[in-house]
């Protein structure tokens, strides 16, 4: 059985819990949103608009009719592969510099104008 002294202590009221703690603590205890939600959060409407724009562009591409490629317009794939391979080999040879003979000859100089024309220009200049 409690004595008078203990009863006297019991009767003392404890200090009130600060009222503003509730909002802070409950907010802090809420589960954090997913990273992607947090990332999108600052401007979700802008992201939605961007996604809609991309969707529209995609639909536009899909809906546009493609013209069929003319038969024989392009070189056969095997010839393309061969040309590409040859070009690659030449580039490697140029870079390594070990085989001067494989260098591609310099492109032919541009067609010169007739001398008569050049003379006229020189004389004018």
């Amino acid at each position: 059985m409690n004595s008078d002294f203990e009863k006297r202590m019991e009767e003392l009221a404890m200090r009130e819990l600060p009222g503003h703690w509730k909002a802070q603590i409950v907010a802090a205890a809420q589960p954090q949103p997913a990273w992607w939600r947090e990332w999108l959060w600052p401007c979700p409407h802008v992201w939605a608009g961007l996604a809609a724009a991309w969707g529209f562009i995609f639909l536009l591409i899909v809906a546009t009719p493609h013209e069929p490629a003319a038969v024989g317009q392009k070189a056969p794939a095997s010839w393309q592969s061969f040309a590409f391979l040859q070009q690659e080999t030449e580039i490697i040879a140029q870079l390594s510099g070990d085989d001067e003979s494989h260098r591609t000859p310099p492109p032919p100089p541009a067609a010169t104008k007739p001398r008569s024309t050049r003379r006229v220009k020189q004389s004018v200049g």
């Binding site: 404890m14 819990l17 509730k22 603590i25 809420q30």
Partner: peptide, 19 residues
């Protein structure tokens, strides 16, 4: 909701826990 549950828990016990 979990927030409501938490608030209820807070209202019922936070004062005692605080003291």
């Amino acid at each position: 909701s979990s927030e409501t549950n938490l608030e209820r828990l807070y209202d019922e016990h936070a004062q005692a826990l605080f003291a």
